[in-house]
Write a protein that binds this DNA or RNA. Structure first.
Lengths: 248, 248
DNA sequence: CGTCGGCTTGATTGTGCTCAACCCGGGTGG
DNA sequence: CCACCCGGGTTGAGCACAATCAAGCCGACG
């Protein structure tokens, strides 16, 4: 487990790839100026723990690239992922001393970090940031609650189909492509991570993925590259309302 | 359990029982004045749906008394509760057109309601309210995530023990009593509602409650009144870290 | 070439679901 | 007043789905 050299290449906020979706998306030019001076980039390699549950965390920030996971572990080792942090998502909570969950880099992850205390001071002065953060937090709460339906009520097959469709949808929106018919992408998660996310064992995940492949709903290239033959067919397997439903 | 006549008695904000915990808890005297004039009380009887998922909702507000539930239903009838709203909890989301989940009164519920548009305008002017709302939303997100661990990884018995201990803890804090040894309270939820909350069937809930009773961990008087013989013993059944853990 | 980690597949087990009968208490109508 | 019903809850028997235990595969890397 060698620690790679940290990248400190600083992008100007105006050229930031997550500019339009992150906490700072509503900020005025002068606020952005302040943030620009405050920020530091930091890159974590895949598998590295960014924050341990219970830690006193001195920074907050946004995911610029890569995928990080939020998870919780019981004493006997049972683990549940409780959130997935994607580019533009916010890490850490203003006004809290310690972190409630582990934050782990699922792929290589770059964060745009701010000193916690300084960011908190800025929040008091500039309502744009706190308002945007409220909005983002409400969104996260909604998706956490959708996830609760999945965990509590869906079958293994529905869980897998839901996860694939969510990743596909997100990947498509990242590349600004419409979601229809054939969709291809790389899984950012290992089978074990998928299991932790879905409340399953990794064996069950593997079996269900194989089943979807056997039935011609998806194709695999290697273990991580997925090709969804027809997106609508996959959606039918999620258990969600496919026609006329409200998609968030 | 007779349905009481709806109360329209308007309490002065300064005498409000949830004053110190609700959205308005950080508000200045003049803000409170405005809120005082804006608010209307409304009482819903047990079982009544306060908001349907997908509704255009014209109001926001706080739970003053009683227990409401947030839930989601799949086409085939599978249902998952995704939140429990207790006195001082906030209902509705500023800046959103439609409600994502059903809100149902589990017991008789009284809301302190505000016109949505007016409240949103007030939020822009007064950072105290939006900041408090952010804080509350972050708290809700944390508890939603704890609930995800329960749904994804805990056994039926652990789920029941967890639910009982949470209700007990909350009930104790409401009555400002310490949680130790013997704890008594009334369940605000039917067996079915408990099942919806825990991602179980009502039969399994019933069996597990009976098992805890048989083993002398709890006593029942009727179906709803619970007497926890020794709180620590119950905690041992939750699967949570009982010693030294961080209790949120 | 061997090893190691991530993944797949198989056999068996067990927890919680399903279907079904029954209980209990409260309210209603004859 | 009793008989009845009805809704919420309990209990039982059998089953199914996912967990567990176990073996083996595949590709990367030394």
């Amino acid at each position: 487990m060698n620690v790679k050299a940290t990248l400190f290449v600083k992008t100007d906020c105006r050229d930031c790839p997550i500019r339009h979706r992150a906490v700072c998306s509503r900020s005025t030019a002068d606020e952005l100026e302040i943030l620009d001076r405050m920020k530091t980039y930091r890159t974590y390699e895949a598998g590295q723990t960014i924050i341990w549950a219970g830690d006193q965390v001195q920074f907050l920030g946004s995911v610029v690239s890569g995928v990080a996971t939020l998870s919780q572990t019981m004493e006997d080792g049972r683990r549940q992922m409780v959130g997935m942090l994607l580019p533009s998502d916010f890490v850490g909570r203003p006004g809290r001393e310690s972190a409630p969950f582990d934050v782990v880099a699922a792929t290589e992850v770059t964060l745009c970090r701010f000193q916690k205390s300084a960011f908190e001071r800025l929040m008091v002065q500039s309502p744009a940031i706190s308002r945007r953060l409220l909005e983002m937090t409400l969104d996260e709460l909604d998706s956490a609650r959708e996830w609760m339906l999945l965990l509590g009520r869906k079958t293994a097959r529905e869980k897998i189909a839901s996860l694939l469709s969510i990743i596909a949808r997100r990947d498509a929106s990242l590349h600004l492509q419409p979601i229809s018919g054939n969709v291809e992408f790389d899984l950012p998660l290992s089978r074990e991570a998928m299991a932790d996310y879905l409340g399953l064992t990794l064996e069950t995940v593997s079996r269900q993925v194989s089943a979807l492949k056997r039935e011609g709903i998806i194709e695999l290239q290697g273990k991580r590259h997925i090709n969804i033959i027809d997106f609508a067919t996959l959606l039918n397997e999620t258990g969600d309302d496919t026609d006329g439903g409200i998609w968030t």
